[in-house]
């Protein structure tokens, strides 16, 4: 379910947005807290709509939240 090539800045962005908790982010994007935990730790690659919702919540572009490393084998 996860992707080794996909990294994210969700944790940093949460703290930059008033120490937002995982639960608050989960409520805003309409998923469970467990999904946020799994996404944040890279164990789950979210769907495109969810990725956009997370980016919109932080008011940044999707590339600023998720990075895809295509140089990894």
């Amino acid at each position: 379910m996860g992707s080794d090539r996909l990294s994210n800045n969700i944790r940093r962005l949460r703290f930059e947005h008033g120490q937002m908790t995982q639960q608050e982010l989960a409520d805003k994007v309409g998923v469970t807290r467990q999904t946020i935990i799994a996404t944040e730790s890279g164990r789950y690659a979210p769907s495109l709509p969810l990725a956009f919702k997370i980016a919109q919540t932080f008011g940044v572009s999707i590339e600023q939240v998720f990075q895809y490393d295509d140089e990894k084998p």
Binding site: A26, G30, V31, A38
Partner: peptide, 14 residues
């Protein structure tokens, strides 16, 4: 937690 959804996209995949 009444505000939490019962299942999301990850739950469906699981």
């Amino acid at each position: 937690n009444t505000g939490e959804p019962w299942a999301d996209e990850r739950d469906k995949l699981i």
